[in-house]
Design a protein around this nucleic acid. Structure first.
Lengths: 213, 213
DNA sequence: GGCGCACTCAGGGTTCACCCTGATTTCGAG
DNA sequence: CTCGAAATCAGGGTGAACCCTGAGTGCGCC
């Protein structure tokens, strides 16, 4: 046994913590345990383990909360999320917070040990099915569920709205659509009223938030 | 052998293609090969394999080029990047283009077969060391290298610039900074000139691109 | 002490953004 | 056929955005 990474286990079920500890055997040093967010932050800050085995759902918050609290304190450690959940949202949120791996509790003991070692060495580890979620989120092709706000705009109004959001002047929009400036004004006015916005700046950020531009 | 995914192999070296084919054995059906970007696009479009084994560096372009061309045509297939390179940039760019996995050519034959099967089933597969790059890029904490353009603005001008970029009216900015509207105008004018922009809309997108706001 | 720079402000001007009222045409639903 | 929604445009108005010239104050630097 060349290297024995130190580990803190965070899970709200005593039984799970005991099980994980048993599975890990003496391949790692378990130097702390915690059952909720507060305990976890204290334990990690106190003992700075190489790796934190982190349940995603805790009674007082989420695994992401723990990660955020620790990174906010400038403490350097590595997180491996360990959860029964294989929901994309759970995976993404905890990875976005800074976890470097995510495995489900269905993992076999030898694989868990290997996963912890790899994380300790700086690699990332995923249950195969879960890596896909991260990739999907990464090359985010979020197919917007057709915003109902948008349906309230007539086709022409939507065209004008897009150009407005990009910062084109009325004159430019008129030229591009081959209509008069006055018509553009009319459309612009209706767009703003229908979307309950008061200027093209608000429209710009509105459109940016919904990835329309 | 329950399921035999169809595969197209893209690599500019005959030897490598032969080697890959040998390693895959009869676990998959190799239904096409290609040695450059153009050949690859034709072969994939023609035969629509379940999985494309894709070298990252090709004589006439990159693996990402192939992926972009195929997705542009609306063809659905899955890409597994297979490269000698383990450079983060190579990994990121090909994943960003849409590959669902990346393994190095050091992979063992049984692992390669398993990787192809997993990709065919919709999972993502990575050599462990490479997954880390994707995670790093994903939770991208790009520390901006202090834009030299920004240094050309005086402190006060930078303040005004930020507020302008957020869409505040001169009146608002004047109120917040406790100065007159005329002074805000002066600063705004200088900011636009120094940054060679012509309107606050350009300033907004300029600032958004550099993550200043 | 003079020189440059950042910061402050004013006057005066043009263009643009946005609003309101009102009008015409086309087109499809009832 | 009638009615309404969509699209087109005009006139006329207010305020915001942006420009130029000019000018006063404080501050550090040679």
């Amino acid at each position: 046994m060349a290297y024995q990474p130190s580990v803190v286990i965070v899970d709200d079920h005593d039984l799970v913590r005991a099980g994980v500890k048993a599975q890990l055997g003496d391949a790692v040093r378990v130097i702390g345990e915690a059952a909720d967010v507060h305990e976890a932050v204290d334990a990690i800050a106190d003992r700075t383990p190489d790796v934190v085995l982190l349940d995603v759902h805790l009674p007082s918050g989420t695994g992401a909360d723990v990660i955020n609290a620790i990174t906010a304190r400038g403490i350097e450690t590595k997180f491996l999320a360990l959860s029964v959940s294989d929901a994309p949202d759970d995976v993404i949120s905890v990875i976005r917070a800074g976890a470097r791996g995510y495995v489900t509790k269905a993992i076999k003991d030898t694989e868990l040990i290997e996963a912890v070692i790899r994380i300790a060495e700086g690699d990332a580890v995923f249950s195969p099915r879960l890596a896909g979620f991260v990739i999907d989120a990464f090359s985010a092709t979020i197919p917007e569920p057709t915003d109902p706000e948008l349906d309230r705009l007539s086709p022409r109004e939507q065209e004008v709205m897009r150009l407005l959001a990009r910062g084109y002047a009325y004159k430019e929009i008129a030229r591009r659509l081959n209509i008069s400036i006055k018509t553009v004004e009319t459309h612009a006015s209706k767009v703003l009223r229908k979307l309950q916005l008061s200027s093209r700046h608000e429209l710009s950020s509105w459109a940016a938030r919904r990835r329309i531009v």
